[in-house]
Amino acid sequence: MGGVLLWRGCTYPAKLVEELEALLRVLNHAKVDFSILEDEKCCGYPLILLGRRDLAKEIAEENSKKLNKYSLVITPCPACFRMFSQFYPTLGAKTPEIMHVSQFLHKLMQEKRIDASELKPVKLKVMYHDPCELGRHMGVYEEPRKILAEIPGLSLYEQRFVREKSVCCGGGSLLPVYTSSLSAMVAARKLLEEDRIPEDLDAIVTTCPQCILNIRQGIRWISEEKPINVRVYNLAQILDMSLRGEIQ
């Protein structure tokens, strides 16, 4: 057995189709031979957050059989990434090598399967948001930044708190499943009071579907009082724009 599996996670196919399509285009552009599971199910992470390791274990064992048919699993969801990397081993579920998509895309760039000469300017001022699951919990801070640094024309706004001190968007840990408004307020406060986003910021780039959705909610929350025009992209979208030479 071998090959690469793109594990999409629940959120992208359900709620972030455009974002997922951009990722697929980038992977195809780099001629990555990858598979997708039509019957992909939950990774079990929400059950861990609920406190139900017993149920998570059942799912992990089932998923483990599917994952082990591949030599590498890549996923754009930091929750799935953490679940496979940190929790599956403690649940007795074996996995092949697991990478977050940002790590994999960075590797493609290092191997020149996506070459810097192919990248066209993306004239946007963006801020990179470290998702808690990817950053603090999995220690992935550098790869997304290195990718963004390669994009010509992109200007980066550096907020007050980054990497291990970055401020959570409020979209994790099951909070939005029972009080989405509190989650949105956390995001709004983060953008205004912690990150202090400048007026000319075009977009926030991040690497987690929950962060994308919740930061968008935060922007909506802010806009109810004072409209702001800030988009939220996943990292692969920026790369996709750069490869295609169009800003979405």
Partner: peptide, 17 residues
């Protein structure tokens, strides 16, 4: 576990708790 949290997880995972 509060019911709201449990029901929320059921809704996002499609798994009956």
């Amino acid at each position: 576990t509060p019911s709201w949290v449990k029901e929320g997880v059921e809704a996002i995972t499609g798994i009956k708790i």
